[in-house]
Write a protein that binds this DNA or RNA. Structure first.
Length: 721
DNA sequence: GTGCCTCGAGTTCC
DNA sequence: CTCGAGGCAC
């Protein structure tokens, strides 16, 4: 069973006392006593976790205790107790919740904070769609519920799966729990064959108060706010506990559908209501930014009278065909925005300023605060961004906070940006201690002592120690094993720090030799590890000896090569061999074709090229790379989105004036069909789409004998206008 | 050169 | 989630 890891720190019973005697050296008498002790601890922990949602120990300790119990039982089978924890089958599935891949990604929303942001939003959409300022453009507007989003999948009208948002691509399977929520129908009629309904799970104020009163009465853990209560309740491993918690659900969107629900957002929501979903009664249709802002004011006024938390108002383009044309940016749809309410503020004292060193060597100041509640959460740290922010200047040297600097000992006003990240808004000069001094930002790395240098025009100061700086080395390794890179289960920040400090993992390749070295390392005998967790760790590591090219590239942690750029490179060169060959050729000959090709890739400019080549030119990096590759089975070639469109895999260049669509739209459309869009014509170009006014690119394409299409021909090729 | 838009890298608490 | 800056169109 997986214990909840999101609990506060608890003392670990396992590590408190003297080191336990190894099972094989226990006498029968001692073993019996030990089994009794373990049964008590484990069963109590189990109950605390399940019935009270208040874990008393960490995952690792819990697993270690269970493993110890099992080891002793294996040696003394006769001593196995009736209440043995190893017999507790009814408790929960071993792995917690299963993972679910969303057929259509669950995205987040861009945020707006004032009226100007809303008129900008409207303006951006009009520009993208090539609509004039006075053309009609309707939106829907609805309160943004502060709960957690859930995706419900119906097949033939039957609820078959419920999943949390997770990282947007992959969530947790909470089907059994969702079925216990009264607002969620188990069957719907008159629905498409496949329908994913999306909405928000929340807890009403009244139910939240009642639940907390009940919890307090039983001496259980109370929740800080309704959102946490809803999240905690939905993520119960035992659905019967969820059933006892009064959760509600509003439907407001959809994922995969086998046939369109309607022509408009409004119509689709009406349709969901007809099917039996609760939809928010405050939803309105608005004919422009002014109406949206009006509705926002109305909802803000009603906020206090609502029986649920809301943190803003969401606006969506009503016409679904237009939504389709607008499409998505990397994490948000272009056709929607969340207009957030002003953040809650709180005053507290700044006790200290610590400096953290990131994987690129960036020195980031962090404020240590006297704990204070902001928006229902206790905050004790806040980011201070950089040197200038502390001094009261923005990146152009212009004053912010009217130039008031931030000092240790100051009373500061804290808020949670986007209701998440704690930040400091202002300082109270009247309460500033008389002996305070302006903060002086360190000019050497606090971790390794190397000079910390701030390049002219740059806002961050960076440690110049490179891989000789332990902080940078550790952060790079953490990045490597992170969820979006190699994603190695059981090898988190804590373990990386431990292995690095012990000198056991100092480079990526050494992760993969861990198992072979375990003869000497004997991880299973260490605190926090057991036979089972060590076996799991090795299995997780071995699983990643095969890795997709884009993840591999991203994991290397080359500056300016994030997930998107890594993907772009993977999509361009398809295999690691091709990419490495191109990079080596470009290093060898900066005048050559390989170099030109690299710079020609859309989205990759001189800075990224420079970083890539510097990485390849560095002997140390090549060694790290070769050592790592020697440990891997395969770096999988880029798997182009399985598209059978006529332009899939083709490289397309747009030039001249486009009439039916804007350039952005054309690019997004082509990419969604599996094409690569480049900015310049080269030998690799397959199709040039030339509008009126095309110049040098059309000429070059003609010289190279590249297919040139008019915009109309292009639209016919991809099927539809 | 200027002004978007997007991406990368930093951050917190659960 | 936000800020700074890279990339690109105008």
């Amino acid at each position: 069973m997986a214990q909840k890891s999101e609990s506060e720190a608890h003392p670990d019973p396992e590590t408190e006392g003297p080191t336990p005697v190894a099972p094989e050296s226990l006498s029968a008498e001692a073993a019996a006593a030990e089994l009794e002790r373990l049964a008590g601890i484990i069963n109590t922990a189990n109950d605390a976790y399940h019935q009270d949602d208040a874990p008393v120990m960490s995952d690792a300790s819990f697993d270690a205790l269970k493993a110890r119990n099992a080891a002793i039982e294996a040696r003394f089978p006769d001593l196995k107790r009736a209440d043995s924890p190893s017999e507790q089958v009814g408790a929960a599935p071993a792995e917690g919740f299963g993972k679910v891949r969303h057929a259509v990604r669950m995205l987040s929303l861009a945020n707006a904070f004032d009226a100007e942001d809303i008129t900008d939003f409207d303006g951006r959409i009009r520009r993208y769609l090539n609509l004039s300022e006075d053309a009609a453009l309707a939106y829907t507007s609805e309160p943004k519920i502060d709960g957690l989003s859930l995706s419900l999948r119906y097949e033939s009208g039957r609820l078959v799966q419920a999943a949390t948002r997770g990282d947007g691509s992959e969530g947790e399977n909470v089907t059994a729990n969702a079925r216990t929520i009264a607002d969620i129908p188990h069957h719907i009629s008159d629905a498409p064959e496949v329908l994913e309904v999306r909405g928000e799970v929340y807890m009403s104020h009244a139910d939240f108060e009642a639940l907390n009163a009940r919890q307090a009465e039983r001496g259980g853990k109370t929740f800080a706010n309704p959102r946490n209560a809803a999240a905690g309740s939905l993520r119960q491993l035992d659905a019967e506990i969820t059933r006892a918690r009064p959760l509600c659900f509003f439907a407001y969107a959809w994922g995969e559908v086998s046939e369109p629900l309607a022509d408009t957002q409004w119509g689709a929501i009406e349709r969901l209501a007809e099917m039996g979903f609760r939809t928010n009664p405050l939803t309105r249709r608005c004919d422009g930014p002014q109406a949206l802002i009006g509705h926002y004011a109305e909802i803000e006024q009603q906020r206090a009278t609502l029986d649920y938390d809301i943190d803003g108002v969401v606006y969506k383009v009503d016409d679904l065909a237009l939504q389709g044309r607008l499409g998505f940016r990397s994490t948000t749809p272009r056709w929607a925005i969340a207009h957030k309410f002003p953040a809650e503020l709180a005053w507290t004292r700044l006790d200290a300023i610590d400096i953290q060193v990131g994987r690129t060597g960036a020195l980031s100041p962090v404020a240590r605060l006297s704990p204070v509640t902001v928006g229902g959460v206790v905050v004790s740290n806040a980011t201070l961004h950089n040197e200038d922010y502390i001094a009261g200047l923005d990146n152009n040297g212009a004053p912010i906070r009217e130039g008031r600097d931030i000092r240790i000992g100051d009373w500061v006003q804290v808020y949670r940006a986007g209701d998440v990240i704690p930040k400091i808004k202002d300082v109270d000069l009247a309460r500033r201690p008389e002996d305070s001094a302006a903060y002086s930002f360190p000019e050497t790395c606090p971790e390794c002592g190397s000079d910390a240098i701030r390049e002219p025009g740059d806002s961050v100061r960076r440690c110049s120690g490179g891989m000789a700086c332990p902080a940078q080395a550790i952060e790079k390794l953490k990045h490597f094993v992170g969820r979006t890179a190699f994603d190695i289960d059981g090898l988190g920040a804590k373990q990386i720090e431990m292995f690095f400090t012990a000198g056991e993992i100092t480079s990526p390749a050494e992760i993969f030799t861990l198992e072979a070295r375990n003869v000497d390392l004997k991880l299973q005998e260490r605190d926090g590890f057991g036979e089972t967790s060590v076996a799991k760790l090795f299995a997780a590591i071995n699983e990643r000896r095969t890795i997709p090219l884009e993840r591999f590239l991203f994991a290397l942690g080359i500056r300016h090569v994030g997930q998107t750029t890594a993907r772009t490179l993977a999509a361009t060169y398809l295999t690691l061999d091709a990419l490495l060959a191109a990079l080596k050729a470009a290093v060898a000959d900066p005048e050559g074709e390989a170099y030109a090709e690299l710079e020609g890739i859309d989205g990759i400019g001189p800075t990224v090229v420079r970083e890539l080549l510097e990485f390849m030119a560095e002997a140390h990096n090549r060694t790290v790379l070769d050592d790592l590759l020697a440990q891997l089975r395969e770096v999988e070639p880029f798997d182009a989105p399985a598209q059978d469109s006529p332009v899939a895999g083709k490289t397309v260049v747009f030039t001249g004036t486009l009439e039916a669509m804007t350039r952005d739209e054309a690019k997004a459309r082509a990419e969604s069909l599996g094409a690569r869009v480049s900015g310049s014509v080269s030998k690799k170009t397959d199709i040039l789409v030339a509008g009126p006014g095309a110049g040098s690119k059309a000429k070059k394409a003609a010289e190279l004998g590249i297919t040139t299409l008019t915009e109309q021909e292009w639209l016919e090729l991809i099927g539809g206008g």
